[in-house]
Simulated assay, not measured.
Amino acid sequence: MPSSLSGHHVGLTVSDLETTVAFYRDVLGLEVLDRFEVSGQAFETVTELEGSSGRFVHLDAGDVRLELVEYEPAGAALEDSDLNQPGAAHVGLAVDDLESVYAGLPEDVETLSDPQTTASGTTLCFLRDPEGNLVELLEA
């Protein structure tokens, strides 16, 4: 693998950009770094989506950016996936005090369980963002 590779971003496609940005910013505390729109022939070519455009927001997730993108036209929504399904994805975010973060979650945030400490010594829980994407919160 080339030595010039480094992490830049993890991307999630969403249907409601502003609601999803508000969740990651206001509920999880990620800072908005950038907002931009992309369209045109080069974008259509690299995405293989004729007539497409995208609205993007980059959020600061520490060593990597979380990229949220809303495409026009929108594709069909994927069904929620279980963690053990091939192709399933999740965003992992480290926190200093998981119990406090968990206790401060709004009641309407869907969680898979309360925080659990695994055999590896990591305390974690999973929740879903407003789009149904899985988010792992962990305290090492």
Rank of each mutant, 00 (worst) to 15 (best):
E136K: 04
A94T: 08
P2K: 14
S4M: 07
M1I: 14
L138S: 04
D34C: 10
S6N: 10
R35T: 01
S100N: 13
S39M: 08
L98H: 00
L59H: 04
S3D: 11
E44Y: 00
S113V: 07
L112G: 03
E79A: 12
E67N: 04
E139R: 00
S53V: 06
A22T: 07
A140M: 13
A42M: 10
E72D: 12
A103S: 10
L137K: 01
Y24H: 01
T117V: 14
V69I: 14
L59N: 05
F23I: 04
S6I: 10
F23W: 07
S4H: 14
G7A: 15
Y71N: 12
L138C: 07
F23S: 00
E139F: 06
L105N: 03
V27I: 13
Y102W: 13
H58F: 13
A42N: 13
S120Q: 10
A89E: 06
S4Q: 12
T122A: 11
P130K: 08
G92K: 05
E31K: 09
V95P: 01
V91G: 00
H9W: 07
S113I: 11
E67Y: 02
R25Y: 04
L138M: 15
D114F: 10
V101D: 00
N133L: 11
Y24A: 02
E136Y: 00
D108A: 09
E50A: 10
V57P: 00
G121L: 06
R35M: 10
E37V: 14
V14I: 08
D16K: 02
D16G: 03
L59C: 05
F43A: 06
V21R: 02
R128M: 09
D114I: 11
T13P: 03
V95R: 03
P115G: 06
R25S: 02
L127Q: 03
L17Q: 05
T117Y: 08
H8R: 15
L28P: 02
A77K: 15
Q116T: 12
D26C: 04
N84C: 10
S4C: 12
L112D: 11
D97G: 02
S52Q: 08
S39K: 05
E31N: 12
E18W: 03
G104N: 09
V21C: 02
R35W: 07
E107T: 09
D97E: 12
R128Q: 12
N84M: 10
D96F: 14
F36Y: 15
M1Y: 13
A88R: 09
S39P: 04
V32L: 03
D97S: 02
F56K: 05
P115E: 04
L12S: 04
E107S: 13
R128Y: 07
P73H: 14
E31Y: 09
L78F: 15
L124Q: 14
D80W: 11
H8D: 04
V91M: 11
G51E: 07
T117K: 09
T123E: 03
G75C: 03
R35L: 07
V38C: 06
G40Q: 08
E79D: 15
V101K: 02
G75T: 07
P115Y: 05
G75N: 11
E37D: 13
L49T: 13
F43W: 08
H8S: 14
V14D: 01
Y24G: 00
L30R: 00
G87K: 08
G62L: 06
L127P: 01
G11K: 03
